Amino acid sequence: MFTGIIEDTGLVTLLDHELENLHISIKSRLATELKIDQSVAHNGVCLTVVNINNDEYTVTAIKETLDKTNLGALKINDQVNIERAMKLGDRLDGHMVQGHVDQTAQCTQIEDANGSWVFTFSYDASLNNVTIEKGSITINGTSLTVVNSKTDSFSVAIIPYTFEHTNFNRLQIGDMVNLEFDVLGKYVARLLQKKEREQF
């Protein structure tokens, strides 16, 4: 379980394809604090640490993960948002994040709001994921609040601290991001779908 509060932006140093798996090596100041088998979120994707070498560590993404997230599009020197799993007893500064990406979205607009930024994203609504105004959304692992919620798009406002300390500062129009919708909202949506099916 994660909170969506990014601890570091790591630098991709090596991408090693093995059959349908992708081994991703990342340079991060957190590397020396990690352990083998530890779960770490990368752009919101929970992956297991398989190797540590000084200030670099390696995780492995399997085909299903690559198919459902933006990790397959990573390039050397790309930045990824990193968060270690939350500890019991810690403050929950973001919201409950599982590290299981629901789908990707495309950045369609970036607006400079004179001290902050408004990013707009569109996504495939046929997958039945929904946002609500002022609800929680996780974008590339970052816990954010939804504004301008629509059926297949939404926006988020990014404060300077978040812009500087996540990979939002590298995001461009057309880029794909990972989305994890609010887990409580997903349960409500599933229950409503079940109720509708039972009525017919």
Rank of each mutant, 00 (worst) to 15 (best):
I139Q: 04
T131Y: 07
H165A: 00
Y161M: 08
V130G: 12
L71H: 06
D102H: 13
M96C: 03
T166L: 00
E83A: 00
I159Y: 00
Q79D: 01
S126F: 00
R84T: 07
G135K: 15
I158M: 08
D124L: 14
I62D: 13
V97A: 01
N129G: 07
D124E: 15
K68V: 05
Q79E: 10
S136A: 15
E133T: 11
S153V: 08
T120K: 11
P160L: 01
I158E: 02
K87E: 01
G115C: 14
T142W: 00
F154K: 05
V80C: 13
Q103E: 14
I158K: 01
V80P: 04
K68T: 13
T69F: 10
S116R: 12
D102I: 10
S155R: 08
F168V: 01
T69D: 01
N140F: 13
T104G: 12
S149C: 07
A73Q: 12
K87W: 02
N81A: 05
S153D: 06
P160G: 05
N70P: 10
C107A: 08
S143P: 00
K87V: 02
A105L: 14
K150A: 04
T69A: 05
Q109C: 11
K150L: 09
M86V: 09
S149K: 08
M96Y: 10
Q103H: 09
S122L: 09
K75H: 11
V156F: 11
D67N: 10
T166Q: 09
A85D: 05
F168L: 01
